[in-house]
């Protein structure tokens, strides 16, 4: 076994590289779990992420942490192939969703994204009514029946903990909501396509503390429903809401970023294996 591969095995959480591999090819895996095997990302000729091996367990919150510029968001966008929309990005290695390689030929990223939803850094509701925002995804999939739509919209808004606030104003323009409400609307919009996974890219970084608290509460509830992968630069937030934490680091600009450590959140924050993880976490805690 080469040194590189040996190191990769060390990095793998919840067992060995073989376990990740076998999970990657197992079709029976629990729905909404990712397995990443030796994943790398290159912008043009520049390698920005290298050698990421990890599992994303189903119905749990996985937090991606690390200093800014370490490629957390880029890795996140590999999971719903949003990187495809930017020219010149190449993804290497294997990423499987419930045993299916999402980069293999015949996989349509458009279909993938109905199974893997995303919530963005800044609230970005469409310039239309609350109702039409949430209905966008189902309508995209061809759903036209009014009663079915109504039902999906109510359940999505309930799941995003927004229903009580907006149930009498569904025709109101989304821009009239507050920032925090807009972000929960975006969560509801993503939930309406009934995804198995929800990717969240620093979803609370543009919000005030109270709205942030509400989003965190929502996430805690949502993990019973979907797998959540969240990028955050807020240590406390990662500690509060996640079950598993992955720490990424780009040690210098000539080197690609890599996964330093991944594991159970409690263990990571109390007893990190890697010195770099420890210094990052403690540095942030002050």
């Amino acid at each position: 076994m080469s040194a590189v591969l040996e190191k990769a095995v060390m990095d793998v959480p919840f067992g060995s590289l073989e376990q990740v591999r076998s999970s990657a090819s197992s079709v029976e895996a629990v729905s909404g779990s990712f397995a990443l095997v030796d994943v790398s990302v290159a912008y043009g000729s520049e390698m920005v992420i290298e050698g990421v091996n990890m599992l994303v367990p189903s119905r749990a919150v996985t937090a991606l942490i690390g200093p800014s510029g370490c490629g957390k968001s880029t890795l996140l966008r590999c999971l719903n192939r949003m990187n495809d929309e930017i020219g010149g990005v190449r993804v290497g290695g294997t990423i499987t969703l419930d045993g299916l390689d999402i980069y293999q030929k015949g996989v349509d990223p458009v279909d993938l994204r109905t199974r893997v939803g995303q919530v963005f850094q800044r609230p970005n509701p469409f310039p239309m009514s609350i109702y039409d925002n949430v209905a966008f995804g189902p309508r995209t999939q061809g759903l036209r029946k009014r009663e079915e739509l109504d039902e999906i919209i109510e359940s999505s808004l309930r799941d995003a903990a927004l229903w009580e606030e907006v149930k009498n104003h569904l025709k109101k323009h989304a821009f009239e909501l507050s920032g925090g409400q807009q972000q929960r609307l975006c969560i509801a919009r993503a939930l309406a396509t009934k995804p198995e996974v929800l990717l969240m890219d620093e979803p609370a970084s543009a919000l005030d503390p109270i709205s942030t608290q509400q989003i965190e509460d929502t996430i805690a509830e949502l993990k019973n429903l979907v797998t959540i992968v969240i990028v955050t630069h807020n240590m406390q937030q990662a500690a509060r809401i996640s079950d598993q934490t992955a720490f990424m680091l780009r040690e210098s600009m000539d080197q690609p970023a890599h996964l330093v450590e991944v594991g159970d959140t409690k263990r990571m924050f109390t007893n990190p294996e890697d010195k770099r993880t420890e210094s990052y976490i403690t540095g942030r805690f002050g």
């Binding site: 909404g32 999402i102 996989v107 279909d111 009934k194 019973n224």
Partner: peptide, 19 residues
């Protein structure tokens, strides 16, 4: 909180040729 059961056995990732 309503937990919608998600059985995704029928969902696949093929290309919709018409689209």
């Amino acid at each position: 909180m309503t937990v919608t059961p998600t059985t995704k056995a029928g969902r696949h990732l093929g290309r919709a040729t018409r689209r």
